[in-house]
């Protein structure tokens, strides 16, 4: 049998065995069987020396080619088997839930407040604050709300059981006074914060709730400015399609005063045309006089609205108490 006749079947057998190896251990075993010191292929190579001189070069070339082929097949199979070994025993179920790293959520009232603040800051307002425990002067008198005014009914206001006649502010408007007392015009502030009214908690009332107040004082500030600003902010907050309506109203610290109603597809879905949203007006000259601003030089507007109300409209929440229960199933939705 010629050398070539021996080589070719051996090579074919070796290739078949390598491809058939079912795991890495079997592969190494097969490799030993052919290419190891005692392997069949190694044995054949040893026969080279016994060949006649003239046959040696051709035979040597054949053997080398075959060896390269075998090694290539070995490496290829090894790579396949290594990949197979790396796979988990059972296929991964990609539909199983992942290991979550939950992000905490901001309270919906915080989110709404931040959105309002962002809108106002775009147009040059800064955020201001003031105390929640107030005196009667800042909460009422300075805001042109005299002692016999119905808004000062102690039925509506929480007073502290301390010797001072302190109370919990009933609106953020008290901060208007505090800011104007401290700094000269022009003023452009918004004041988010908690306020308190002596209402029993129900779906639409909570003794603690949150307001945001805007105050703009400068020369030549007009009702038109007020309308333009309010429309800008509410369209940012509630969407471009929101329509606003200003209705004459009464507040003791603004003159003229207005209530702002809004209309949107959502309001109409609720079966209404207009929904009350906020109160506003031009700062009353008496208020300016109280803080030492000359109403002949300065004019301004103020408005205020409830943050819960905006959040309830935006998220279609129907019970104000949900905000203060802090149920995690509620909090995680926003």
């Amino acid at each position: 049998m010629s050398f070539h006749d021996q080589l070719e079947p051996l090579k074919q057998a070796a290739l078949a065995d390598l491809r058939a190896a079912s795991d890495l251990a079997a592969l190494e075993q097969t490799k030993g069987n052919y290419l190891g010191a005692q392997g069949k292929f190694t044995a054949l190579m040893k026969q080279l020396g016994t060949l006649p001189k003239e046959e040696k070069p051709a035979a040597g070339k054949l053997v080398n080619q075959a060896k390269i082929e075998l090694e290539a097949a070995l490496n290829e199979r090894r790579a396949e088997l290594e990949l197979k070994a790396a796979l988990p025993k059972e296929p991964t179920d990609f539909t199983l839930p992942g290991r979550r790293r939950p992000l905490g959520k901001l309270h919906p009232l915080t989110q709404v407040t931040e959105d309002i603040v962002r809108s106002f800051r775009k147009i040059g307002f800064v955020v201001a604050d003031g105390p929640e425990i107030e005196d009667e002067y800042h909460c009422f008198d300075a805001l042109n709300t005299p002692a016999d005014h119905p808004a000062r009914d102690s039925q509506d206001t929480f007073y502290l059981g301390t010797p001072t006649k302190s109370l919990l502010r009933t609106h953020t408007s008290s901060v208007q006074i505090r800011v104007m007392e401290k700094q000269p015009p022009p003023i452009r502030i918004i004041v988010p914060g908690r306020v308190y009214r002596r209402d029993n908690a129900d779906a639409t009332h909570n003794p603690t709730f949150q307001q945001i107040e805007g105050l703009y004082v400068d020369k030549h500030v007009t009702v038109a400015d007020l309308k333009g600003t309010v429309e800008f902010v509410f369209q940012e907050l509630l969407g471009e399609e929101v329509k606003l309506r200003f209705r004459p109203h009464y507040f003791s610290y603004t003159e003229p005063s207005f209530e702002i109603d809004f209309s949107s597809p959502m309001v109409r879905k609720m079966g209404k045309e207009w929904l009350e949203l906020a109160g506003c007006g031009m700062v009353h000259p008496q208020v300016f006089e109280n803080v030492g601003y000359d109403p002949e030089i300065w004019s301004g507007w103020a408005f205020g609205f409830g943050i819960e109300r905006i959040a309830m409209l935006r998220y279609e929440i129907n019970d104000i108490r949900l905000f203060y229960e802090n149920d995690v199933r509620f909090l995680r939705q926003f």
Binding site: G104, K105, T110, R194, Y196, N326, L331
Partner: peptide, 18 residues
């Protein structure tokens, strides 16, 4: 402060003042 705490996975509560 709120951003860091929510980033750590805590949910923000708002309790009653009273």
């Amino acid at each position: 402060a709120r951003r860091i705490l929510t980033g750590l996975g805590l949910n923000e509560a708002q309790g009653q003042t009273l």
